[in-house]
Design a protein around this nucleic acid. Structure first.
Ligand code: FES
Ligand code: FES
Lengths: 148, 148
DNA sequence: CAAATAAAAGATAAAAAAGTCTTTTTATAT
DNA sequence: ATATAAAAAGACTTTTTTATCTTTTATTTG
């Protein structure tokens, strides 16, 4: 479904949301280490996200990545749109030319409801909401969030 | 989720089930044309399926591919296992090292129920059952099936 | 048997995705 | 100002996936 780049992007952005803020930026290498992502590869991905203003960055000493208010209200859908493109959500699960009710493949009636729920969540929940959900699911509450 | 090879494989096998039988085999080129799949690429895929005895073939004039009784009772899961491998069904949707309830990613609780339904269908329905379901969904009933 | 036909096998080739490395730019702190 | 740290930019490499081409082998038909 998602490419490795896309998965890396989402996990990295959620990590940034949970572990940094404007006064406490985080470097791409640290994120890469923590998430076990090849560092130069992640750096490229973060570059693209920065260019599309989904995350923010500052160069130089104590520079790094963080999320502005505006960034935090973007969605995971925006991330996927930026890195992978969203065409994939139109495609038939089995690669038929069309995906629709008229000529459904044998997986269609399983796949479409899942896809709709997925898209709804990806589009309506903000990055910060997702990051909080993740931190709750995983029982951690980061000190950085406190003094944001 | 599935690679192109895997999608091609499933669509081709369902096509074979619906449009050929032991006395009326179908060639790889014809399948490729009908399903808009690159012909030499499909030929390779069908070779692998034949080697793993998921489909049957006969060389020479009036040769081609068909499904034996035994073939027809295999599943789409067997096809995926042969072409793509089944490791992918273990992976986290967002590429986390583990996919489990202890450290669920933000898509986990949407993804796992879908995956379970999908796997259940892929594993329990036979190829011939899937092929019939497809032909019903698409309102065609092939003459070849009649005199099988 | 000979000719024709279709799959099998295997070698290449092209494209896409993933990953690495080097240089440049910019912000910060001393 | 200068040194430094970190991202930005971009060239490059490797790996994987997708696709093609050629030769061989097996089967059928006349
Ligand atoms: S037709 Fe295959 S998923 Fe919709
Ligand atoms: S943890 Fe991500 S899908 Fe299960």
């Amino acid at each position: 479904m998602l490419s490795k780049s896309g998965k890396y992007a989402i996990r990295a952005v959620l990590y940034i949301s949970n572990h940094s803020n404007k006064n406490n930026k985080i470097g791409s290498k640290e994120i890469a280490n923590k998430l076990h992502i090849p560092a130069p590869f992640l750096a490229k991905i973060l570059q693209e996200l920065t260019k599309k203003e989904i995350i923010s960055s500052v160069k130089g000493p104590h520079g790094g990545f963080y999320l502005s208010q505006k960034n935090n209200n973007k969605t995971l859908f925006d991330i996927i749109d930026c890195i992978d493109g969203i065409q994939k959500f139109e495609n038939c699960f089995l690669g038929q030319e069309e995906c629709n009710e008229n000529k459904p493949c044998v997986i269609h009636h399983l796949y479409v409801p899942f896809k709709n729920k997925l898209l709804s969540k990806l589009k309506t929940k903000t990055i910060v909401e997702m990051a909080i959900e993740y931190s709750k699911n995983n029982n951690f509450f980061d000190f950085v969030k406190l003094n944001e």
